[in-house]
Simulated assay, not measured.
Amino acid sequence: IIRQDRKRSFLYYLMEYVEGEGLDKWLRKNQPPSPKRAINIVKQVAEGLKAFHQNEAVHQDLKPGNIMVTEEGKALVLDFGSVFVAGLSECVSPIIPDGVLGTAGYSDPLYLRGHNPGIQGDVYSLATITYEMFTGTLPYGDKIEQCRSAFDYDQLRYTEASSNNPVIPEWFDGALKRGTSFDLEERYRTIDDFMKDLLQPNPEFLKADPVVQKSANTLMFWKLLSGFWFVTFLLLIYLFSQNS
């Protein structure tokens, strides 16, 4: 805040002017962005959120429109109108029942259910934005914007990022899936945890899915059995043809 020497007659405040454009517009111009540029923006946004969290504050309305990208590729987090600050929560209502807190598609569905996920809410938003940057769509599709109840959200299913962008590795997709999980027990607890798995392979995501593996083994069994009976059938035909 700039110190004033004369008596004030109006209430106002000054902000830094930033030359750039919202990430939403930037993505429309640069879709798909190069992985290097995309992950650089994600890392900067993550650092901005960590600064919030270190000061016991949560953004609660992170979305592409609230992220400014300069021509130099610098990313800044904007719009603190929904910020939750520890110690001031008794002065304002952190949860707005009609769902206007945050933005549909990017905000944690738990807000709608009357729960405040805290830092994990920002993790969800960052993971959702990261998913969109690499795939051009949302992890639960466009239908998430029409959800109005817990039942509506329960009908949604995560879409594997690799199905929208085949070059996305399995471990990267695993980090996005965990970051956007509706279950707080499964979701990352901090931004650092999410970024760690996003930037380097987590062996847990490279393990074969036991259900898929079981299905593959079953399929192989039936293929081998079918092959055995087919060979047996051909052998019988050959033997009978020799006798005749």
Score class of each variant (00 low, 15 high):
1 I>H: 08
1 I>F: 02
3 R>T: 09
3 R>P: 00
4 Q>T: 08
5 D>M: 11
18 V>W: 04
22 G>P: 12
25 K>L: 13
26 W>M: 08
41 I>H: 11
41 I>G: 01
44 Q>F: 04
44 Q>S: 07
45 V>D: 02
47 E>I: 07
54 Q>V: 01
54 Q>W: 01
59 H>M: 02
65 G>W: 05
71 E>P: 01
83 V>S: 13
85 V>L: 11
87 G>I: 12
94 P>G: 06
99 G>Y: 07
104 A>Y: 14
109 P>T: 12
110 L>F: 11
111 Y>A: 06
114 G>V: 07
116 N>D: 13
119 I>S: 03
121 G>Y: 02
124 Y>V: 02
126 L>A: 06
128 T>E: 01
132 E>F: 05
145 E>M: 10
148 R>W: 01
151 F>K: 14
158 Y>C: 05
170 E>P: 00
175 A>S: 11
192 D>N: 12
195 M>A: 09
202 N>K: 08
202 N>E: 08
203 P>S: 07
203 P>A: 03
205 F>I: 10
206 L>K: 10
207 K>E: 14
207 K>F: 04
210 P>R: 03
211 V>F: 07
211 V>D: 10
219 L>C: 13
223 K>V: 12
224 L>R: 14
227 G>N: 10
231 V>Y: 12
231 V>P: 00
234 L>N: 10
237 I>P: 00
242 Q>N: 10
244 S>Y: 05
244 S>A: 03
